[in-house]
């Protein structure tokens, strides 16, 4: 069974980015001053409306790649494109990011936290108020706008964080292991809600979701980009074509098959030394 996956995926087919490619990383490398190669020759195209998971063990550079797409880090070699532009600011692309932690301002109410991106962009108060309420409703926090972050549970804080990302109606949503610190029930619930939020945007919202959970990647994404460590690189780019995503899907044979497939590839890609992490 395992033998089938032993040979690592060949060079990802060199597709060229087109007008619908919101993000494009071309032969991107990142070497830190101490010599660590966080990324090596990464080529990745994200199409409008994609839900892509970056899946891999810690140290495979998935978070680094995400930060590059956010414009928070720059590559040592290669280049990145945002709708063809060489900086996220020039592209007109609206990018939002959700971090590992909820990262809310503790001194501001939930509503004020969610309003922050609009305030920073100078959106008039009258307009931002209604957009904040709408974003809070979307994540199920409609009645909690006046609470302070510390008054919310971990899962609700994460919901507030997602509301803050959605309030700008972004084209690209970057998520860096957002639910990693939550318990499994909360996590499954948030995964399901995230998936329906994305589906409601009808192909307008691209999500890049960094995770080290195979189950989460299979459940959420339409595409799983698998990465391996030392040096950080992409080893596979696989579609998850199942249309239906609900509790039923979690229990289906197709789900199990995808998980088993990814798990075997992950093991093969890391030369069977996953246990070193």
């Amino acid at each position: 069974m395992l033998m089938k996956y032993m040979d690592i995926e060949p060079e990802p087919t060199l597709l060229a980015p087109d007008a619908d490619s919101v993000l494009f990383a071309n032969r991107v490398e990142k070497t830190y001053p101490n010599g660590t190669r966080a990324l090596d020759e990464v080529r990745l195209i994200i199409q409008r409306g994609d839900f892509v998971s970056l899946l891999g063990p810690s140290g495979c550079g998935k978070s680094t790649l995400l930060k590059m797409f956010a414009g928070l880090e720059s590559p040592s070699h290669g280049h990145l494109r945002w709708l063809g532009a060489d900086a996220p600011g020039k592209s007109g692309l609206k990018i939002a990011m959700v971090f590992q932690e909820a990262t809310l301002m503790p001194w501001a109410s939930v509503a004020a936290n969610v309003r922050l991106p609009l305030d920073l962009a100078g959106v008039p108060k009258a307009e931002s108020e209604s957009r904040v309420q709408q974003a809070l409703n979307q994540v199920g926090l409609g009645r909690f706008g006046n609470c302070y972050p510390r008054e919310l549970s971990g899962g609700m804080q994460m919901r507030a964080s997602i509301a803050r990302a959605l309030v700008t109606e972004p084209d690209v949503l970057l998520m860096d292991e957002p639910f990693g610190a939550l318990d499994e029930f909360t996590r499954n619930k948030l995964d399901a809600d995230l998936r329906s939020l994305w589906a409601a945007k009808a192909g307008q919202l691209s999500v890049i979701f960094v995770t080290h959970s195979i189950y989460e990647a299979v459940y959420l994404s339409s595409r799983v980009v698998m990465m391996a460590a030392r040096p950080g690189r992409i080893v596979a780019d696989l579609p998850i074509p199942e249309p239906q995503r609900d509790e039923e899907f979690r229990l289906s044979p197709a789900f199990t098959e995808h998980c088993r497939d990814l798990s075997a590839r992950l093991l093969a890609a890391s030369g069977g030394e996953l246990q070193h992490d």
């Binding site: 971090f99 590992q100 990262t103 920073l120």
Partner: peptide
């Protein structure tokens, strides 16, 4: 909080906004 600092950067906050609001 470095996460909040990143958030402000992504949202294109000016130096002044980062100072007064963060």
């Amino acid at each position: 909080n470095p996460g909040l600092l990143n958030l402000f950067r992504i949202n294109g906050a000016s130096r002044w906004q980062t100072l007064t609001r963060l």
